[in-house]
Simulated scan of single mutants.
Amino acid sequence: MSNPLTSRPTLGQFSSIVCFKAVITGMEEALGEKATSIALIAAGRQRGKNLAKELGLSGASQDLDLIADKLNEAIGANGTHLAAIEKIVAQGDVIKVYCSETICSAGEPQGSDRKCTFTLGAVWGALSEITGKKLRGTHTESVLRGGTNDVFEYTTLT
């Protein structure tokens, strides 16, 4: 993959939320909501796996605070601006990731049923790569539906 900064010397590596959301809504119109969700989660998972490898985190740590810090650095305000990772906590075989300012929730009206599919997938892929575990992810709380954060829950599959 080429370096985005060398291929876009003036515009750099970032695009707008408006354009990203237009990709999502265009895909939903062309493919339907379910197929779009599957595709975006899969794309996110691949991105997350690659990110964890790039960060040298593959199987490297079970310290969830460290994982949260490193992922936030990569995809938060100092990284790609996909979302801010506030914290990651384990509850039995469930890992909960608390995010804010997710790209998918940006600009959506309160009460919207929008899910953070790409971001859910990106964190999912990263956690799978880091922990070496097969996980199932769901978006369980949303800032669009009364939550204080977008919360993703990842359950270990046996």
Rank of each mutant, 00 (worst) to 15 (best):
S112C: 12
G107Y: 02
Q110P: 03
L31R: 10
I75F: 00
L144I: 05
A74P: 03
L71S: 02
T102R: 05
T102G: 14
K53Y: 03
C99H: 06
G59Q: 08
S37M: 07
K134I: 08
A126F: 03
D65K: 13
G121R: 06
C116E: 11
C99P: 07
D93C: 08
L64C: 09
S128M: 15
G125A: 04
G137H: 11
S61Y: 06
T140I: 15
G44M: 00
S37H: 13
Q62L: 10
D69G: 02
G44Y: 01
H139M: 07
G59L: 11
T80Y: 01
R114I: 14
S61R: 06
R145W: 09
L82K: 08
T36K: 07
V123M: 08
G76Q: 05
L71H: 09
E108P: 03
A106F: 13
R45F: 06
T102I: 04
L127T: 05
S58P: 01
R145F: 07
N72K: 06
G137S: 12
A106T: 04
I75K: 02
G147W: 07
T80G: 08
L120T: 09
G121D: 03
A42F: 00
I41P: 00
A74K: 02
L57N: 04
E33A: 15
G59V: 05
W124V: 06
R136Q: 13
E86T: 10
T117L: 11
D65P: 04
A30K: 15
V94M: 06
